[in-house]
Design a protein around this nucleic acid. Structure first.
Length: 350
DNA sequence: CGATTTTGACCAGCGC
DNA sequence: GCGCTGGTCAAAATCG
């Protein structure tokens, strides 16, 4: 089966408390088959923008691949702006009702009910609130391995940018009442709600979601003094999609096993582990369900081979985002999993 | 028996 | 002020 695979990065601005089902999902990065060549020539890390996070922010790079029509329909979208100056700017675009209003015209790939969406949109215009920016990274792909590994890599990059590398959200204005950590939502096609990410979570609440038959679960990192939270809910329009929203940054390494080697057939699990500071646990059953689900189609232009496994050479060369052969782990002090994706100079700045 | 989940109650923010 | 909703608390239940 030939599928158009792609990575979507959604700029979801506005209501922090709205259901994912209310999100005006809109593709700004949608790879058509004839764009694959372009992507291949970029390299995965290049695509993610981690070769130079300051001058080439992740999302700016991604935005460079966006669908032109979206550029035209969404001038307020920070990703479509040519004035992006830094990741800081990108990620701190204030959420205003205007900027969060996203046309449904190009969102058919995500929403099956445009008419309904118009109503939702109208609702959103009415109810949109000022809130911390929420970046929703939407990995539109049927392959679970692709979802897990790539989205986690992206997540790690984002967390590295804001946490380790010093890019943080601007403090909220004083007139804003409650301060929140930056939040990042990830949409993953999965059959289980709570995706294994290497950290230990304790569920502390569950709420019914308005206009959705699926409840939202609230989890907190079990590590003392780590106040990272996450919300897990299913997408109303597509129940097969799990939306995980992370809030805050872990103040500790992943509590589980050390990193596996990025070798051979373990690549998928390895990158999953490496990508978010999340070494594998002792592979619970649902972990296998996610990470070892057989590939049924070509997954992505993003250096996944035809058999669905990551290109080992690419990984080896791009691992540290430096030209030439990537330095072996012994060349850097162990920064935990961070070293897997960040250039060495960034690590030194920690 | 400690860790985790469940679940109803409570609180805060927001719109009307 | 009131009602609605999202988010959190905490006691009870369940699990390993």
């Amino acid at each position: 089966m030939e599928r158009k695979e792609g990575v979507k990065v959604e700029d979801v601005l506005g209501n922090s408390s709205c259901s994912v089902n209310d999100f005006p999902l809109q593709s700004i990065f949608d790879l058509s088959s004839n764009e694959e060549e372009k992507i291949r020539s970029l390299g995965f890390m290049d695509l993610l923008g981690v070769q130079d996070l300051i001058s080439s922010p992740l999302l700016e790079i991604m935005a460079a691949q966006q669908v032109p029509s979206l550029m035209a329909t969404q001038p307020p979208n920070p990703f479509s702006s040519t004035k992006i100056e830094s990741p800081h700017e990108v990620f701190n675009q204030p959420a205003t009702p205007n900027s969060s209003t996203i046309s449904s015209a190009s969102s058919e790939a995500v929403h099956d009910e445009p008419a309904k969406l118009d109503d939702q949109e109208e609702d959103q215009r009415k109810t949109k609130k000022q809130c911390p920016i929420l970046k929703l990274i939407w990995i539109r792909n049927q392959g679970f391995d692709f979802h897990q590994s790539v989205l986690k890599l992206i997540m790690k990059i984002i967390f590295c940018c804001f946490g380790v590398c010093g890019f943080r959200l601007k403090p909220k204005k004083t007139n804003q009442k409650r301060q929140r950590e930056p939040r990042f939502a990830f949409m993953t096609k999965s059959e289980v709600d709570h995706l294994e990410d290497g950290y230990r979570w304790r569920k502390y609440g569950q709420k019914a979601v308005k206009n959705s038959p699926f409840p939202r679960s609230y989890y907190r990192c079990t590590t003392i003094s780590c106040n990272v939270k996450k919300r897990v809910e299913r997408c109303f329009s597509d129940p097969s999609i799990v939306v995980t929203t992370y809030e805050g940054q872990h103040t500790h390494p992943s509590p589980v096993m050390p990193r596996p080697n990025l070798v051979g057939s373990h690549l998928n699990s390895a990158i999953s582990a490496a990508s978010f500071g999340m070494p594998m646990q002792t592979t619970p059953s649902h972990y296998h369900q996610h990470f070892q689900q057989p590939f049924t189609d070509n997954l992505s232009p993003l250096y996944f081979g035809h058999n669905g496994s990551l290109n080992a050479t690419f990984l080896h060369q791009k691992r540290f985002c430096t030209p030439g052969p990537g330095p072996g782990p012994s060349l850097l002090k162990d920064h935990g999993l961070l070293q897997d994706i960040l250039p060495s100079h960034m690590l030194k700045e920690e």
